[in-house]
């Protein structure tokens, strides 16, 4: 029976990489369309780097995702630590509150936020994008951190205080090292959520702040260019470079620990 399960699981990993392999293969396709394969070319990579507006949207997405992920992780750490130490009534309600944005369809939240920003006369741009992405990634980041924070020994802060640590020292020397794997996982999850967001961005982007997924989505009308495949392939490459840079072993440790 375990052998069957192993077979199924390996199949799942293959399944996850099928479209990724296709994206990479078709990024070298000489035919201008995905419906045929006409031999190999590097043309789409050349076009990609010449496409200034596409590269600009990539930068916008990266900027927004970095800020969003960082802010979401910081707020998430605070909330998770606070909740782990909170023994009063309404813990369940607090958890439900932080998860609330998960159960509202994004378009509803996006349109509603747009009207909030317009009544407060906040100009649309990077800031509104970050706020919009924050509200969809904060619940995910917090939930990841909460599972880790709940495992911490409740007597830790007392011990630290007895040893003469200030609250800040308690955090940097005691909590943060213990939470580090979860912090990385939460950051990556928020980064991915923001980086790939379409719906919130549709309503909350402003002059000069078109994100990459928005650009791709709006070019659907004229047809996706093969350069988009090239960009997809390059982003996978970038991911692999980061993974190798950090060292697979470290990454393993981070993820294993963060999920306990």
């Amino acid at each position: 029976m375990d052998r069957i399960v192993n077979g199924i699981a390996r199949g799942v990993f293959v399944f996850l990489y099928i479209p990724i392999v296709a994206v990479i293969v078709y990024s070298f396709n000489a035919a201008g369309t995905n419906t045929r394969f006409d031999g190999l070319t590097l043309q789409w990579y050349v076009e990609l780097f010449q496409d200034a507006s596409l590269m600009q949207t990539l930068r916008t997405s990266a900027l927004v995702a970095v800020i969003t992920a960082t802010v979401a992780t910081i707020i998430g750490i605070m909330f998770a630590l606070g909740l782990a130490r909170y023994r009063g009534r309404g813990r369940g309600a607090l958890m439900a509150l932080i998860a609330l944005p998960l159960i509202v369809p994004e378009i509803v939240l996006g349109v509603a936020l747009l009207s909030v920003f317009s009544t407060t006369k906040m100009p649309l741009g990077i800031l509104t994008l970050v706020l919009g992405h924050l509200i969809v990634s904060l619940p995910l980041a917090t939930l990841v951190l909460m599972s880790s924070a709940a495992m911490l020994d409740p007597s830790l802060p007392e011990a630290a205080t007895d040893l003469g640590c200030t609250p800040w020292q308690t955090f940097t020397r005691v909590y943060f090292p213990l939470l580090r794997p979860a912090v990385v996982a939460a950051w990556l999850l928020s980064f991915t959520t923001s980086f790939s967001n379409i719906v919130m961005s549709t309503f909350l982007s402003g002059v000069g702040s078109t994100t990459l997924p928005l650009k791709i989505y709006s070019s659907l009308k004229t047809g996706l260019t093969p350069s988009i495949n090239a960009l997809g392939a390059l982003l996978i490459l970038l991911t692999l470079v980061i993974v190798l840079l950090v060292g697979v072993s470290q990454m393993r440790r981070i993820l294993v620990e963060s999920r306990t």
């Binding site: 990993f13 996850l16 990489y17 099928i18 479209p19 990724i20 296709a22 994206v23 078709y26 995905n34 419906t35 990556l188 991915t192 980086f195 790939s196 379409i198 990459l212 997924p213 791709i216 989505y217 659907l220 996706l224 988009i228 495949n229 960009l231 997809g232 982003l235 996978i236 991911t239 692999l240 993974v243 697979v248 990454m251 393993r252 440790r253 981070i254 993820l255 294993v256 999920r259």
Partner: peptide, 25 residues
């Protein structure tokens, strides 16, 4: 185990539409 988990999330760092169009192809 960590490496396997990483393998599970890496595909999601490519754009959703790019992946979906790959499936269509």
């Amino acid at each position: 185990q960590g490496f396997l988990l990483l393998l599970v999330i890496i595909p999601f760092w490519t754009d959703f539409l790019v992946r979906t169009f790959a499936w269509i192809t």
